[in-house]
């Protein structure tokens, strides 16, 4: 059945390869895209190297990170039954960020390419674990949020402390730039590191899709529909921690994708929190890739950080949400 919503979703799918091509064509150097693509992975020309070693992994990473953030946001909003929830709410992002900051702080980050992302993923899991333990047995959604806010506040305090006592201006700059989020200078290493976590996280979240559907009626109703027990929320939380933690680990904290994207696509999936998962992954991937195309084509002395771009897209969206709520449109 092809209706308008499905047609738009279909267009989003079609837009992906086009956006990918646009991203590959964007950058400070003009390259001949056709021959470079044709020369393949092992191409020797400078165009081929730029394409295959720099632009391709960066563009693919944008897709993977965007998908993780979008799907994580959809899962979070579904689990907390709240359209204003985002993955950062449960400390995933700040856990990953703090771990990364500590490495940058001690200047250990560049000793090996994978050390920072691995520890950042660990940080995400630790943060979610703390939230889970703090919220306690059989926690309601509101208690989880409360625990998340508390853990987030504590992690923010630690981050502020790390910035305060940064050993050098250089370290401080590194930390601040890392917090802004960026896809610059990321290669195949980061992509291959993040991908398994994002895929595993996505599968975990997807396994909980019927739980999220049942939860749209409320927690008691979900239990009465056969979704009692801790394994369902735990699967979702672990999925978010793995996918979003890996995304933050390789790209820094990129805000608003997890908040905005589920909102944008919810009407397209008839508000179904289950289908929203993959639809948000799709739209998140596309949105982040387009934001990165903007970054790549932005001409300035400093690199424009992608976190700043997504915030510029996200904040006006919030204005719009408030205004439409004022007009009586349900959030």
């Amino acid at each position: 059945m092809l209706n308008r919503s499905n047609a738009i979703l279909g267009l989003l799918v079609l837009a992906l390869p086009l956006a990918l091509l646009a991203a590959l064509a964007s950058g400070p150097v003009d390259i001949d895209l056709g021959p470079a693509l044709a020369s393949g992975w092992a191409g020797q020309g400078s165009d081929a190297v730029i394409l295959w070693q720099l632009r391709m992994p960066r563009a693919l990473l944008a897709l993977v990170v965007g998908a993780a953030l979008g799907m994580g946001g959809a899962a979070m909003q579904g689990m907390l039954r709240n359209p204003l929830a985002e993955p950062a709410l449960l400390g995933v992002s700040s856990g990953a960020a703090l771990a990364a900051i500590l490495l940058l702080y001690y200047g250990l980050a560049w000793q090996s390419g994978w050390l920072l992302p691995v520890l950042a993923i660990g940080g995400a899991f630790v943060a979610v674990g703390c939230v889970w333990l703090l919220a306690g047995r059989g926690a309601s959604a509101s208690r989880l949020v409360l625990a998340g806010v508390a853990i987030n506040a504590f992690l923010s305090a630690l981050m502020a402390l790390a910035l305060n006592y940064a050993p050098s201006m250089f370290a401080m700059q590194e930390i601040v730039f890392w917090l802004l989020g960026s896809l610059a200078n990321r290669g195949w290493d980061q992509l291959l590191l993040a991908l398994p976590f994002v895929v595993a996280g996505a599968l975990l979240m997807f396994s909980g899709r019927n739980y999220l559907r049942a939860l749209s009626l409320g927690e008691a109703s979900a239990v009465s529909l056969g979704f009692g027990g801790r394994r369902y929320p735990l699967a979702i939380l672990l999925g978010i921690a793995a996918a979003v933690g890996a995304a933050v680990a390789v790209a820094g904290t990129i805000g608003f994708i997890g908040l905005v994207v589920p909102h944008l696509v919810r009407p397209l999936v008839k508000q179904d929190p289950g289908r929203l998962l993959w639809a948000s992954a799709l739209a998140g991937a596309l949105l982040l890739l387009m934001a990165d195309i903007l970054v790549l084509n932005f001409i300035g002395a400093q690199e424009l950080r992608i976190g700043a771009v997504t915030a510029f897209i996200g904040a006006p969206f919030f204005f719009w949400l408030i205004v439409s709520a004022r007009r009586g449109v349900a959030l």
């Binding site: 039954r81 749209s216 409320g218 508000q271 179904d272 349900a330």
Partner: peptide
């Protein structure tokens, strides 16, 4: 349940 309210505007 008492006063069940759907979270999303499902059809």
């Amino acid at each position: 349940p008492q006063a069940e309210m759907p979270a999303w505007s499902l059809a």
